[in-house]
Design a protein around this nucleic acid. Structure first.
Lengths: 125, 125
DNA sequence: GTTGTATTCAACCAGATAGTTGATTGCAAG
DNA sequence: CTTGCAATCAACTATCTGGTTGAATACAAC
């Protein structure tokens, strides 16, 4: 299994069946049997999916007689959105700054023709 | 490979090396060699990672002589945040409603003791 | 205590994944 | 046109994953 929490959460949600389970759990807790109903896989397979979600911190289990109701722990999702938003914003800002540079450039100036990559240019100053 | 776009993006970001690449690409485009530098894996392995990111729609490739600069396509990240936020919000609202119910409940009423799961209760009306 | 129900554990299998080494392609420059 | 560099392709390997079947556990109810 992936050692870092973020990898575990991303990997857990990379499976459509598990995403569907999360979606249904967002509407309310459910037992393994209830969760398994819509899919045509064995209950053992569903149990395994739940273990993956549990290891990722996405669900918690309690006990009610022989049932083990599953509860969605939505806070972990914030971990992901924080990561995603950080780099989306960063990329967006860089794009905005590039637009500014192009806008400020006089029309008779060549618009950076051979354009070596950014990291390559850092070494050429 | 996963057939649906959302699974591809989640799976692509489930690897710490690929997340790190995305993080660095958020700061600016780079070539395969530049991207490979920090990691102690072969350049072929990095090339494979880039193919995964490309298949997920997270990066695009252009051509500059023998270089193939990599560019981050941040819009795809919105696909994920939309999915995540939807269910986080849904779970949050359900939690809030539950609080309201508990707050409105007279003190002498039993707070739903044996508590079968929500889906089980749907079938018992 | 035996039976029934909910869930998990164990062992196994097929396919995907992340890595390797070695050969190949595309292009620029001597 | 040969040399050199950037990147990919091909084949192979080890490990991970999602699924299966069959046995085991935990508890309720009769």
């Amino acid at each position: 299994m992936a050692p870092d929490p973020l990898s575990r959460v991303f990997a857990a949600l990379a499976d459509p069946t598990r995403r569907d389970m999360v979606a249904r759990l967002a509407a309310g807790d459910a037992t393994v049997n209830e969760l398994a109903a819509p899919y045509d896989v064995t209950i053992q397979a569903v149990s395994k999916h739940l273990r993956v979600l549990h290891d990722a911190g996405l669900v918690s289990r309690t006990r009610d007689a022989q049932r083990r109701p599953v509860h969605l722990e939505a806070e972990v999702l914030d971990l992901m959105t924080k990561w995603i938003e950080r780099y989306r914003r960063e990329a967006e800002e860089r794009y905005r700054r590039l637009d500014d540079v192009l806008a400020a450039m006089p029309d008779d100036v060549e618009p950076v023709p051979p354009a070596r990559s950014r990291l390559a240019q850092e070494g050429t100053s």
